[in-house]
Amino acid sequence: MPRAIRGVLVECDPSIKSIIVKIDSEDHAFIVEELDDQTLVVKENMLAILKMRLEDELKNTQQLPDDSGSE
């Protein structure tokens, strides 16, 4: 019998996906199903939190270009 699961399909780069998997590995609160390298299904109500966590994670890893500039 086929089953239907509610969720949000997330499509992203493999690198971003691995970050999501890393975030999820702490308490398994986000991912419903990993589909392939670039797609996974996450819980609907956790999407906003996941986005925030991802943003934080990226801030730590990326070097932001300096755009303070002269006024």
Binding site: R3, V8, E11, K51
Partner: peptide
């Protein structure tokens, strides 16, 4: 926008064979 999110439903566990 590093990820694209689409709300919906995942269908799985098709044990009725490839045809189904």
């Amino acid at each position: 926008e590093r990820m694209k999110a689409t709300p919906g439903f995942l269908f799985r566990d098709f044990d009725g064979g490839q045809k189904e």
